[in-house]
Nucleic acid binder design. Sequence first.
DNA 1: GTGAAAGCGCTAACAG
DNA 2: CTGTTAGCGCTTTCAC
Lengths: 341, 341
Amino acid sequence: MADIADVARHVGVSIATVSRALNGKSASPETRQRVLAAAQELGYVVSSSASSLATGRTRNIGFMVPFIDRWFFTTVLKGMEPILLERGYDLTLYDLQGVEKQREIIFDNSLRRASVDGLIAASIELAPNEVRTLRDLKKPVVNIGGTIPGVSTVDIDNLRISQLATEHLISLGHTRIAHVGNGGALGAAFHLGDTRYQGWKTALNNAGIDVDLNLFREADFDIPSGYQAAKSLLGYDRPTAIFAASDEIGIGCILAARDLGFHVPHDLSVIGIDDHHLSGFFDLTTIAQFPEEQGRQAAILLLSNIDEPASEQLHHTVTPSFIIRSSTAKPDMSITSSIRQ
Amino acid sequence: MADIADVARHVGVSIATVSRALNGKSASPETRQRVLAAAQELGYVVSSSASSLATGRTRNIGFMVPFIDRWFFTTVLKGMEPILLERGYDLTLYDLQGVEKQREIIFDNSLRRASVDGLIAASIELAPNEVRTLRDLKKPVVNIGGTIPGVSTVDIDNLRISQLATEHLISLGHTRIAHVGNGGALGAAFHLGDTRYQGWKTALNNAGIDVDLNLFREADFDIPSGYQAAKSLLGYDRPTAIFAASDEIGIGCILAARDLGFHVPHDLSVIGIDDHHLSGFFDLTTIAQFPEEQGRQAAILLLSNIDEPASEQLHHTVTPSFIIRSSTAKPDMSITSSIRQ
DNA sequence: GTGAAAGCGCTAACAG
DNA sequence: CTGTTAGCGCTTTCAC
């Protein structure tokens, strides 16, 4: 591999000049041209370790997730990528896969050995000592999906969107509105499941509808779990609508309804949260939370924090939006009344 | 941050001794103890860039995929992780997202600037000049999913498993066997779609069944696409069985059959390839291709190639296995005969 | 605008 | 087993 000295020799200048020319520092236009040409010709590319050692910057950021094999996280990732790429940053992935022990290893090694310039953590509740470690190392962090003291954040207003989802059902005339969710590792992070559950209760209360806890079923944030929960929900005295804590749960509910011979939305309305890539296919009404945009914002925030260490933490809230499809409709009065009597 | 000199000072030895003790080179047991203790106490962790600059090793490997947001690739990734983690390697992700231009950027920059010690590419047909670049850089490469001249490979025998899948249907007594697949970017990589299509034809030929091209429908490797294809397939003179090129396509077929009022497997058998995480939920018979195992093998192969540059290319074939669920059964003779007449 | 020189923090001979 | 001494390839003062 050609190194910087080769380029310098080729052009007939010092290596310092080559370095400056390549990094856009002071250099005459003519010198810069010749350096660039020589670099191109010799196939020179800066050595990342040498450059990192000299500057303290790696041009590499870390992305930490509880599971990479979930729609939300890969979608966040997709949002981050273009902006990292454009700025010349690589991405190293810290996938915990639910193994908490790995977190410790990652903090004690990868992060500390200065292999990244900053960290984006999604759905991970960093411990105070972890936050401290990062601050001591002067590594900016941005967190996606929940609030951590002393850490910049990108998130959505989960309480609000859960209320909105429930209110949508109420406004259609539903009163027997079930909720499925609040389970699993994803539901536990930052009390996401709890918050959406609270949103459901609050919306019902605000509308003067009694909260019937028989209309709540716990489910992990995936299709099979939503399916099981809905199966158990749709027996006698069934609800006319379900607010699912996620689209995957919602899809599970739709499939369960079909299997039981119910027609969506005629016999049952279902609304989810996410705008998962399969939601259009299943015609699921939902509240989109734009994980790609969340990733984009997180990356922008992180990079600006790297360029100029922020004095204070920033908070960016992504605005969700309603996507009305055909899984929600007015309740079928004949059924409702037959149940009521 | 404490550096190696701090540790040396603390213990009262030279920095060379500290380096050796920490890297498991010659050092008296006692010295090693004291060094370890001091490092622990001072919170010392080696600087990756300094270490890389001195050794030429980054302890970082690259993983290149066409799309990270697909089951196959995240599952391969999951298989790689434990073995990388255990060996102290980080993973930097090169997600092409279908943008071919990014490949060039990645090769010209990330790879060349020596930020990884090796590369695992999945479903990516590396060009000859890319292979050459990598060889010149002495960066081992292992490829998953297809053969590239001069590159170690982990794959499965796609022709064989497609035949097996089709033969399963034949052995149940089906003769009107459709195939859905051979489309999209995933199908194009290494002619994957073509190969599975050929397997279908070959199996039919071997069984003396005429290949009816009206029973083939093109579909991308996803659920909606499989659904559309099956919808168009299941009209008049429909097949009694479908060999889907992937489980996602197969799931789409099952959903289409349901929507059309057909019962699986009574009216229609469906078999896929993958053992996708939703296949159990949909009771889809399939041939598992164990992407996790493919990832594991690829990581093992790559790391051993890094430790001792291999003289020759290696090839590891993962053995798939049948997973019989309830989406396949003997054809319903009454229907078959009514069609025949 | 450019060159000389001093590191960045670590590893790897080479002696002893 | 341990210390001394060169670098690894680049960036960045500091003079000129």
